[in-house]
Design a protein around this nucleic acid. Structure first.
Lengths: 203, 203
DNA sequence: CTTGTGTATGCAACGAGTTGCATAGAAAGA
DNA sequence: TCTTTCTATGCAACTCGTTGCATACACAAG
């Protein structure tokens, strides 16, 4: 129930159209909150009629016009309200974990290629994060090879919050979380692969 | 779209009633797949009419009767089919990450207590996992209180598991994943707290 | 000149998931 | 005895999310 809040945050960081939001939700923000364009358009409509966002028609050359959304006062209030109320432990859905336990009733070795695919995807995502970190936060010469978040990889840093750099700092700490998550997943997937191979060869 | 598969795996591991399933989904399985009892009953009904599971009325003393479900041949086939088809990157929903980025447009310091609450919850979950590991997998003399991921730090016992133990092994590797996840979260939440405190005092 | 790709917006239908409520037997305690 | 708690099952209403489809403009390649 927080897609609207994710949209508010994204629009505060930078106003944009539904289409642009949808693309941000594919990269950047989408790594910790997914949404399809259909859903974004629908929610945007509701937010507009609730007065949470303002719309502005922007003609463009060489492409269709767009509706640029920005956060209205009511939207800011709604976000503040949400920020101040506690949320409970995230509900998780790890298909892969279900599959791994299910493999006991099938052929464990048959899962190896699937797990390798996931490992590959996480490798790529980690590289993407590191590239973004190197690009957007070059001052962090931290472990790893360093290169950027890609999270809110908008070329222009946002200049809104009172401490002008708070947004940057917070984006960076979220990015570091993404990096830590991917590294943990890679380690774990290696563990899973070793286990599956052991079970396969023991047959 | 895999609640039914999660139920199949759980029922294969041990047949049980809808109520028992709901409780498994609160602990154990519920840490990587959540579901409410209402939803479980509804899906169970559908699975029954599809011939995926068999039902058996079990009278009990001292409590209401229950319907014990077990996996039918068709259910096994359905699970096997699902296991063999690839799944794509999990879709994530990290409210907390959204809140952290949103805090840039509010008071970052106001988030500290919320993050501390989450840290507490993850500490408890880690303790729960470690207790489960000590109880169910005593042969893994793993880090317990130590630092590190717990991933590589588990020197796999050389004893070759025979197929009957495959399920145990696979349950353990999933549990190790949960442990690694909680440890990573704790480290990251500490990073978040340090960042929020830094931003707060810099005002 | 047709096809494909990218930008940009949207509807309709369905299935998944949540919330609130209801029932009912049995045990435990006030 | 009355209330609460635990086991056990379920309906109804609603919202959220996904899937499939449709439209329309612009540009580039074949």
């Amino acid at each position: 129930m927080a897609l609207e809040h994710a949209i508010l945050v994204s629009l505060l960081e930078k106003p944009g159209s539904g289409y642009e939001l949808a693309r941000r939700f594919e990269r950047s923000i989408g790594y910790f909150w997914t949404a399809s364009h259909q859903q974004i358009y629908r929610v945007l409509k509701r937010m507009e009629s609730d007065g949470w966002v303002d719309v502005r028609d922007v003609p463009q050359q060489g492409r269709p016009d767009k509706k640029e959304y920005s956060v209205a006062a009511l939207g800011r209030d709604a976000l503040a309200g949400w920020l101040h109320e506690p949320i409970q432990p995230e509900s998780v859905r790890h298909d892969l974990a279900v599959k791994i336990r299910g493999a006991a009733f099938d052929d464990p070795a048959a899962l190896i290629r699937e797990v390798e695919r996931h490992r590959q995807a996480h490798t790529e995502r980690l590289a993407h994060y590191l590239a973004g970190q190197a690009r957007d936060f070059p001052e962090s010469r931290s472990p790893g090879t360093g290169a950027g978040t890609g999270l809110d990889s908008d070329p222009h840093p946002v200049a809104l919050p009172s401490p002008p750099d708070a947004g940057r700092e917070l984006q960076h700490v979220v990015l570091r979380g993404g990096i830590a998550y991917e590294r943990m997943m890679l380690d774990w997937l290696d563990d899973v692969l070793a286990t599956l191979r052991r079970l396969g060869s023991a047959r």
